[in-house]
């Protein structure tokens, strides 16, 4: 399969990249590892006139422990390096585990954590070659009128948000820095996702994900699990991260892969926050599964996903309460 022709842009600074992106917003795409973008260009679901290669910009790669603020991760850090980083394995072991669960070793050797956070939402239909699509009317995410996942819907897209490191990072309370030509803003990673299948990221004109910051790990315990149809290469049917923080007291239960954004299980979180012993794990798990919005049958029936959420939440809670 060929990649359609494009013009390569190689900025040497973040502000240069952001300025170019802002000027050519709809015609340009950012290239980090390329394991998502190159596939989508081959599928003709991304047809940029310009590809902005970020790899020549210094300061976007690597992890750094900060004296007070926790950990700073460059978005261009490859998933292999996240998985192998001693600092991350020591401070945020479940993030390392989540990074290890992405794709295959070949994909992790090229794919970056920033790319994983920005991963395009997908469904069985959108994620196909253009020749496959010649046989039917285009779906909304491809510029058509229909949705094959929820045929009765009159608008919207139900493609899934599947980055495996996303739930783990949200569980650890990560923030992200978005840099634009006229300045930057720092937001909780959770707020980065709009919940829409089309336009799933809250990105303003010219903004580039430039840093991932995780608060100090003191007093935090977490558990991450991923369940997928095959236990390799596949995107998650359900990915789950649960965290319990002592000071300030906070509990998070984050489910990825079931909707167009990662979902928090708020009711189950408050049950877990009040829970005193392992006897409550079943009830917490049931609440999480019952209240969760699972919108799509992609990668497995909704009822099956609900059961998997329940099982994974129960296992995670049990592990954290050991």
């Amino acid at each position: 399969m060929r990649v359609p022709a494009f013009e390569l842009v190689v900025p040497s600074s973040l502000s240069e990249a952001a300025q170019f992106l802002k000027t050519n917003q709809s015609r340009a795409r950012l290239l980090a590892g390329g394991t998502d973008l190159v596939v989508r260009m081959k599928q003709r679901t991304a047809l940029p006139e310009f590809v902005i290669n970020l790899k020549n910009i210094s300061g976007l790669t690597g992890t750094k422990r900060l004296p007070k603020e926790g950990m700073s991760i460059g978005p261009l850090t490859r998933l292999t390096d996240i998985a192998a980083s001693l600092d991350i394995n020591e401070d945020y072991p479940e993030l390392a585990k989540a990074a290890r669960s992405v794709g295959s070793s070949q994909l992790r050797n090229v794919g970056t954590i920033g790319g994983n956070l920005c991963l395009e939402t997908k469904c069985y239909y959108f994620d196909q070659s253009s020749s496959w699509w010649t046989a039917s009317d285009k779906c909304r995410k491809r510029g058509g009128e229909r949705c094959y996942i929820v045929p009765s819907s009159t608008r919207g897209c139900f493609a899934l948000c599947s980055g495996d490191t996303v739930p783990a990072l949200i569980a650890y309370g990560a923030n992200i820095r978005l840099t634009a030509p006229e300045g930057e803003r720092v937001i909780p990673l959770e707020d980065f996702y709009t919940g829409k299948g089309i336009g799933h990221l809250d990105l303003r004109a010219g903004e580039i994900l430039s840093e991932i910051c995780i608060p100090p790990p003191d007093g935090v315990r977490a558990a991450f699990f991923k369940y997928s149809p095959r236990n390799t290469i596949d995107f998650a049917m359900v990915s789950l991260a649960v965290s319990v923080r002592r000071e300030p007291a906070e509990v998070r239960i984050v489910v990825g892969g079931v909707a167009s954004a990662p979902e928090r299980c708020i009711d189950a979180e408050s049950l877990l926050a009040r829970s005193t012993g392992p006897e409550n794990a079943d009830e917490i798990a049931r609440t999480a599964a019952d209240k969760l919005r699972i919108i799509s049958w992609v990668r497995g029936p909704v009822s099956y996903k609900k059961q998997m959420v329940q099982i994974l939440v129960r296992d995670a809670v049990n592990r954290l309460q050991e």
Binding site: V10, G34, V38, N53, V110
Partner: peptide, 18 residues
């Protein structure tokens, strides 16, 4: 799969630009 700077990668996803 080939080795790129010692790491196994999918050659179909690596652009000449890199």
């Amino acid at each position: 799969t080939v080795l790129l700077d010692g790491r196994a990668v999918n050659a179909c996803l690596v652009l000449a630009a890199d």
